[in-house]
């Protein structure tokens, strides 16, 4: 919608809407997303191994994953010095990004550690 307005509106209007649009440093944004992805994947793997050693099964393990991800989100917030909007454009970036990819890694290492400890 904003782009449509920019095309049809006069130059004066488009320049004022350019001022309204938030501008980000895209390169640093990419860097921040990459840092979050690394942290989340690593914590998902470690959480999976811990869940496997503890011998969690079915729903308990997934609740444990949510717990680990909540701890990771809190730690990332603390790492961003509680000023999210100077490092990310929204909270969803911090809380949701890499969640499902991390879930796949979690399940893989969960079953791996469970098999090693409890089955073999």
């Amino acid at each position: 919608m904003a782009g449509h307005d920019n095309i049809n509106g006069s130059t004066e209007k488009s320049s004022s809407s350019m001022d309204d649009l938030p501008t980000f440093n895209a390169e640093n944004m990419q860097n921040n997303m990459k840092v979050i992805l690394y942290s989340r994947t690593f914590m998902a793997i470690i959480g999976g191994v811990i869940a496997g050693i503890l011998g969690l099964t079915s729903l308990t393990g997934f609740i444990f994953y949510f717990l680990v991800m909540a701890i990771t989100s809190a730690a990332l917030t603390a790492k961003a010095k509680f000023s999210i909007h100077s490092y990310f454009d929204s909270w969803n970036r911090l809380v949701l990004d890499g969640f499902f990819g991390g879930l796949m890694s979690f399940v893989l290492f969960w079953t791996f550690a469970y098999d090693i400890v409890h089955i073999f």
Binding site: T23, F24, N25, N28, M29, N31, N32, K34, V35, Y38, S39, F42, M43, I46, G47, I50, I53, L54, V68, I71, T72, A75, L76, K79, A80, S86, Y87, F88, D89
Partner: peptide, 29 residues
């Protein structure tokens, strides 16, 4: 397990690098 979880959380925060500010008018940009 708890000790290793805390250590790995620390590593996950410290190892991948620092956040960089995305504001174009900030000091480092």
């Amino acid at each position: 397990l708890i000790i290793s979880l805390v250590l790995c959380l620390w590593a996950a925060m410290a190892a991948p690098g620092k956040f960089k500010s995305i504001h174009p008018q900030s000091e480092e940009n």
